Amino acid sequence: MILYLASGSPRRAELLQQIAAPFSVLKPPGIDETPLLAEPPLDYVLRMAKQKALAGERQRQRDGSPTGWVLGADTSVVLEGSILGKPRDPAHSLSMLKSLNGRTHQVISAVALLSGGQVRQAHSITTVTFRFMEDARLAAYVATGEGADKAGGYGIQGLGGAMVASLSGSYSGVVGLPLEALVSLMDETGLEYWQTNEDG
């Protein structure tokens, strides 16, 4: 069975490599990621993961690649029921970090596996608490540019990890791909992981 990752995210690719899952990368065109009116955050994240898998499947067909399972994923930072997307600019990034500063939020991460019109989905919800930091320190983090392309304006796997006081749930889900949920789907579909190089 072939696994295609419908994402240009290096973080998601690295997480698949972490569990030694053989895969190929598809880079489908972007989709409209605007939440629907009054759409609950979990519904939104699940919908986005499915839409990304569907976009990946269309790209696979355009490329003429062999059939397989296409993986779409989405992650959102949620504070008091509101979705914090990717920052528009450094000022927006700093504003989001100030809203998260010293507080607890949730990170919802969903995956969708698509093949032959069949879709399987799973998700994780992780509770993250930030330590309190002075505005100058938050501004210094924004200046690094690390969080510019990340939901909530931070990357837990990098310098942003210093802002985290505690975490309950899926660390990999906060990074962008909940491996616990994904591996369960891979077991159901027969997709492989822990594949080693027989020559090495």
Rank of each mutant, 00 (worst) to 15 (best):
M133E: 13
A143V: 12
D74Y: 01
L54V: 15
S93C: 14
S170L: 05
E39N: 12
V128R: 00
L97I: 02
I156T: 04
L36Q: 08
H123E: 07
I156R: 00
Y141H: 06
G190P: 06
G30D: 15
Y171G: 09
R58P: 05
A162I: 14
E180Q: 12
P40Q: 06
L37T: 15
R131C: 12
P90Y: 10
Y141T: 02
D135C: 11
T144C: 09
L36F: 09
V164K: 05
S99F: 07
S65V: 03
Q17T: 11
L16P: 02
S82N: 12
Y141M: 01
A6H: 02
P28C: 10
T75P: 02
L97P: 10
M96Y: 09
G8K: 13
I108F: 06
A13P: 01
Q106S: 12
L42R: 12
K50T: 11
F23R: 12
H92Y: 10
A112M: 05
E146M: 04
H123I: 01
E188W: 08
I2G: 01
R11S: 08
K150E: 05
Q118G: 06
L16Y: 05
G145S: 08
G117S: 11
T34N: 06
D187L: 15
F132V: 12
P40L: 06
G102Y: 06
K98E: 15
L114T: 04
H105G: 06
H105Y: 10
L167N: 03
A6F: 07
G8V: 13
E14I: 05
I31F: 08
T104F: 12
K27D: 00
A53H: 01
A181T: 05
V175N: 00
L15R: 01
Q195Y: 09
L167K: 03
A38H: 14
M133V: 14
T144I: 08
S124P: 03
D74I: 07
E188N: 11
R12I: 04
G30L: 11
E188C: 10
A122F: 02
R137V: 14
M163V: 03
L16D: 01
W194C: 14
S170M: 07
P87I: 02
A49G: 02
L46S: 04
T67C: 15
T34D: 02
P66H: 12
G147M: 01
P90M: 11
V164E: 07
L177S: 02
L71C: 09
G190S: 06
T129P: 07
N101W: 09
F130M: 14
G30A: 15
R103G: 06
S109D: 00
I83W: 03
L185M: 03
Q18N: 11
